[in-house]
Design a protein around this nucleic acid. Structure first.
Lengths: 148, 148
DNA sequence: TTAGCTGCAAAACCTTTGCAGAACG
DNA sequence: CGTTCTGCAAAGGTTTTGCAGCTAA
């Protein structure tokens, strides 16, 4: 099922250019796939999809591009409760943070937005004077379809 | 700095025995270290500490024991925002969930409990009919001591 | 006694690094 | 044209697996 991704400030490629990052054919391809993806891809599946359009693209470039996007704060890295090994999953950073719900049984990933979550972040920043840069909330459990 | 760990139902070794899990010398040693730890250990540092008391203990046993404890739901696995590579950190599951705050600059890990967090979990379970088994909240950012 | 744990060695898996050549601006 | 990116090959780090021997109950 498609994942409802939040609205973005603007396309990643455009954002990168405006930040003075060199825009190459490989990077353009990779960020387009990340933004158009219906499921959060891991590095290897991103590579596989990209290779369909550019057979010469190397896996290492995928890792390097993801590293750059993370450093730029333009993608978030997810673990999705390590339901499928130790790989990471990636999504373009949404305008509003959301929670990922990973079903232990069927593997479905749902997203959940909540004003309580926003309040919780505010509470952390206020009470601990902790300036949040990235926040990750993941829950593992049984989705509505997978309860006896 | 010591991490304030929540109160536990009872010692892990005792809990395991009551669940019919075979209690061996290695397991007893490992769960004692996990429970007494002031910082959440990763697999290798757990192994190193344990080896000080039992030089024959193999790293593989640490991974297998951690796997068993995770399956039993007695330890939680943390990523701590991957501040130090891709390893995982472990803590005995507390009676009350808490949030981990990881400082990007100094590496300090703080814990944070909040009734808002409890409410948020309730909201997820109600609105999505998602039965939460494990939940992980991690924030990366700048702690109070590390802001300009 | 016997099911289950453990050490050892090896493999699997994901990710990073060094370097020479290619490409962007 | 210089800086930065990229492919290739190789290494690095973490975690898992197979199997024979050991151990708790």
């Amino acid at each position: 099922m498609p994942i409802e991704s939040g609205a973005f400030r603007r396309p990643l490629a455009q954002e990168l250019i405006s930040r003075g990052v060199r825009m190459t054919r490989r990077r353009r391809l990779l960020v387009e796939i990340i933004q158009g993806a219906e499921r959060h891809p891991d590095a290897v599946s991103l590579w596989q999809r990209a290779r369909a359009q550019d057979a010469t693209l190397n896996k290492v470039t995928v890792y390097r591009t993801l590293g750059m996007l993370k450093r730029q704060g333009l993608v978030d890295e997810l673990d999705l409760m390590h339901l499928e090994g130790e790989k990471h999953f990636y999504e373009a950073r949404p305008t509003r943070d959301h929670i990922h719900l990973a079903c232990i049984k069927c593997g479905r990933i749902q997203e959940f937005e909540s004003s309580l979550f926003e309040k919780l972040k505010g509470q952390i920043e206020r009470e601990r004077r902790f300036r949040i840069e990235v926040v990750r909330v993941e829950a593992g459990g049984y989705c509505d379809r997978c309860q006896e």
